[in-house]
Design a protein around this nucleic acid. Structure first.
Length: 770
DNA sequence: GCGGCGCTACTACCT
DNA sequence: ACAGGTAGTAGCGCCGCG
């Protein structure tokens, strides 16, 4: 029978010496099913010239096949093996055989190989010819006979479960061997909400009740916040320590740790929302409460907040508050899931990576898995991952702004410039021409001189064209639905997923870790980009349009001139659509690139690059900088603005001097980019991190440290203290005045003539006394 | 021994 | 582990200084 299914998770097992692929999926009627296939043999490719050698017995079959390699037709041996694990061992065996030139695609995981070859897309509707073979627990099992392709449609109703745990520990980072899980909270998409609690310090019931709940609710998707980094490893360790089994997957097993810190719960998609939140650079401090507020899920002011190091106190003395806290956390997590899952589902479908992996996978890997699918479709054998040396190359042009206040400025944006360049000039690893051998039509990149065949269309340009066309079709389809409909929302997430994947391809070509790494391609893309930018600036000059600033693919121009003509010029000459991205009434530049701020025609204040938008300046300094900016943007004349700025900032400085502030507003947040031992110098946040470590906290790469500068004679670094250990009276207010408030205020204020000395008149320097 | 200077380390930002 | 370009702070070593 024909069956339409939406794959959620995939795994395999070996039964009777045969690999069996198992796809956990949802049918059209909402039924949960398992689809199996025992017919697919693992394989890899071998390229050889007169290969000799005895075939190992793990080899099932060898065929000579026609494939392409970087666009060139070639013959390969397709070596199929009996079991997935044989691929790894045979890879070595074949590589060392006399006559073997290369072994390819031997590092592709079996179940991914299956999805790619069968053309099965996770988180999409796939049509298959199946037959029913029985039941596994309560779900039907089908055996697939033939895959009939991907069909369109919207995702089914998913059962989602969010969870969160709280651990009792008196200092530092909790230790599963010692510290009990005193609370576990769950929230489900059918409205269920529960908190499981320990009895005293006995947490066996928490673990059991949690596992029972998961099994009974039987979720398709499990979401957590840092569950890969904390909850799952902690729960499984703790379960082992107290002798409880944590059987939560769909085959009666425990969660398993996979590669790169990802945890899998077979049959379900375990998604760590923190993974995806990490990609939102506009969120500076990524604690659950702040992230939930950012996404409009729950306001921080309307929920219970307990710092991690005080949880044990609340468990001992104010348990009902802790209960509310864990509930607020799980509600936030659930809400985040509602907000983020639709995008992840589409990203899974576009990249071809199963849902539970797509959030954890890096951008480069998502692109690579997508490319592997297209390569298979085009009959291309994928190049191997090889270790390469990093070679820098020139990037985009950034114009130098003239400092000052401008009025009526338009920002022109060249849409999808890099993808368009790649398509137009056919830039791809397989179209790259080395030397002068090629006699057909070629494109030559400016400055760098790399050559590319003009036809036929290369691998990357073809993929890009496909993605752009798909996106266009999705955007067309969106018009058929009301903006507020769920369908519209899903299609919008789909077009976003297609867009970000297309935009990531240029970066991928310049990434040394990429299979299809080709520096010459990346280098040519930026070279064409620079040439276009220079040409458009020149054209603007000819048209008497004044150019104020530009960065990569945007141009800031004075409105009033024939801007439309300039836009048409770019569209006609380069085939790149130009859109007016922003329309400023007033715009402010200092002498710095990548930093500007302005008042948009719609009344919004827009700030780019300045301290206000940076996470590593304290709230107070940012708040003051914003005010200074607003004073300037809203005043009619420069002198008045200058006076008002000075009066305002002086007042703020006085407040600080008289200890009229909140410590929270003075916290400086910085992320550790390395492990503590790898630092060559001792910056402030490292100092603060070392203090945290000394007091039992686990800190290292990726952790964001919040510190304040306290009094003392030594250098700044030695006075950086984790804010949780500091009282207001210990704060070094002079540091904040001279190194946070004044620099932030002067940076913007300088445009109307405000100088550092305007704020230091009250203070007599030693020189004055002499 | 110390202040000033310039370079390096480091982070976060922009497109 | 998608890219390069950029601003800015603090650390740190070096230099000169009778």
């Amino acid at each position: 029978m024909e069956f339409k299914l939406w794959p959620l998770d995939i795994t395999y097992g070996v039964v009777g010496g045969v690999a069996e692929v198992r796809i956990f999926a949802i049918g059209e009627g909402g039924e949960r099913v398992t689809v199996t296939d025992r017919s697919f043999k693992p394989y890899f490719y071998v390229e050889c010239a007169d290969c000799v050698g005895k075939l190992p017995r793990e080899v099932e079959k060898v065929e000579v096949v026609e494939r392409k390699f970087f666009g060139q037709p070639r013959q390969f041996l397709k070596v199929s093996t009996r079991l997935p694990e044989h691929v790894k061992t045979l890879r070595e065996t074949f590589a060392s055989m006399p006559g073997v030139v290369g072994v390819y695609e031997a590092d592709i995981r079996y179940y991914m190989r299956y999805l790619i070859d069968a053309g099965v897309l996770p988180c999409s509707w796939n049509l298959a010819e199946v037959r029913e073979v029985g039941k596994l627990g309560s779900t039907l099992v089908y055996e697939v006979e033939k895959w009939l392709g991907v069909v369109g449609g919207f995702p089914p109703q998913l059962r989602v479960l969010a969870f969160d745990i709280e651990v009792y520990n008196e200092r530092g980072t909790p230790d599963p061997a010692r510290d009990p899980v005193v609370m576990a909270a769950v929230k489900t998409s059918n409205g269920g909400e529960e908190v499981f609690e320990a009895v005293g310090t006995d947490d066996k019931s928490v673990l059991r009740n949690f596992a029972n709940f998961v099994r009974e609710y039987d979720p398709d998707v499990i979401v957590g916040y840092n569950n890969n980094g904390f909850d799952w490893p902690y729960l499984t360790e703790r379960a082992k320590a107290v002798g409880v089994s944590l059987k939560v997957d769909r085959l009666g097993g425990q969660p398993q740790s996979g590669v790169y810190g990802h945890w899998s719960v077979i049959g379900r998609a375990n998604v760590d929302l923190y993974n995806i939140v990490e990609e939102f650079s506009e969120i500076k401090v990524k604690t659950l409460d702040r992230v939930a507020e950012y996404f409009g899920v729950m306001k921080r002011g309307e929920r219970v907040l307990i710092p991690g190091h005080k949880i044990y106190e609340y468990w001992r003395e104010r348990r009902e508050v802790l209960r509310q806290y864990v509930l607020d956390d799980v509600k936030s997590t659930y809400g985040l899931g509602e907000r983020l899952l639709p995008f992840l589902i589409e990203l899974s479908s576009v990249s071809g990576l199963p849902l539970d992996q797509v959030a954890a996978a890096s951008v480069g890997n998502r692109v690579e898995w997508m490319l592997l699918r297209y390569a298979h479709r085009f009959g291309e054998v994928a190049p191997n991952r090889v270790e390469r040396e990093y070679e820098p190359y020139k990037g985009a042009i950034v114009l130098t702004p003239k400092p000052g206040l401008y009025s009526d400025v338009l920002v022109l944006d060249f849409t999808s410039m890099y993808p368009n360049i790649m398509i137009r000039y056919n830039l791809s690893p397989d179209t790259y021409v080395q030397g002068d051998g090629w006699l057909g039509e070629i494109h030559i990149a400016p400055e760098v001189g790399h050559k590319f065949r003009a036809s036929p269309p290369g691998f990357f340009p073809t993929v890009l064209k496909t993605l752009i066309e798909l996106r266009k079709a999705v955007r067309e389809e969106m018009k058929r639905y009301p903006v507020t409909s769920p369908q519209y929302r899903i299609l919008d997430e789909r077009q976003k997923a297609l867009k970000i994947m297309a935009n990531a391809i240029y970066g991928y070509t310049g990434w040394v870790g990429a299979r299809w790494y080709k520096r010459e391609v990346a280098e040519s893309v930026t070279a064409f980009g620079r040439a276009i930018m220079r040409d458009v600036v020149e054209r603007a000059r000819e048209l008497d349009i004044s150019v104020i600033y530009g960065d990569t693919d945007s141009l800031f121009v004075k409105s009033g001139g024939d801007v439309e003509r300039l836009m048409r010029y770019v569209e006609e000459k380069y085939g790149i659509e130009v859109k007016i991205d922003k329309d400023y009434k007033k715009l402010l530049f200092t002498e710095a690139k990548k930093r500007y701020a302005g008042l948009l025609k719609d009344g919004r204040v827009d700030i780019v690059g300045f301290e206000v938008v940076r996470g590593d300046w304290c709230e107070l300094a940012k708040e003051i900088q914003l005010k200074v900016l607003e004073i300037i943007l809203h005043s009619r004349d420069v002198q008045e603005a200058k006076r008002n700025v000075i009066t305002y900032v002086k007042r703020e400085i006085e407040k600080l001097r008289s200890y009229n502030f909140e410590v929270d507003n003075l916290i400086i947040w910085k992320t550790l980019d390395k492990e503590l031992g790898e630092y060559k110098s001792r910056p402030p946040h490292l100092h603060a991190a070392l203090i945290l470590k000394q007091r039992g906290y686990r800190v290292g790469r990726g952790v964001t440290i919040g510190y304040v500068i306290v009094k003392g004679g030594e250098k700044v670094s030695n006075r950086a203290m984790p804010y949780i250990f500091v009282n207001a009276r210990e704060i070094d207010v002079d540091y904040y005045i001279n190194h946070q408030i004044i620099p932030a205020a002067v940076r913007i204020g300088q445009v109307v003539g405000v100088r550092e000395s305007d704020f230091k008149t009250g203070e007599k320097s030693l020189l004055d006394f002499i």
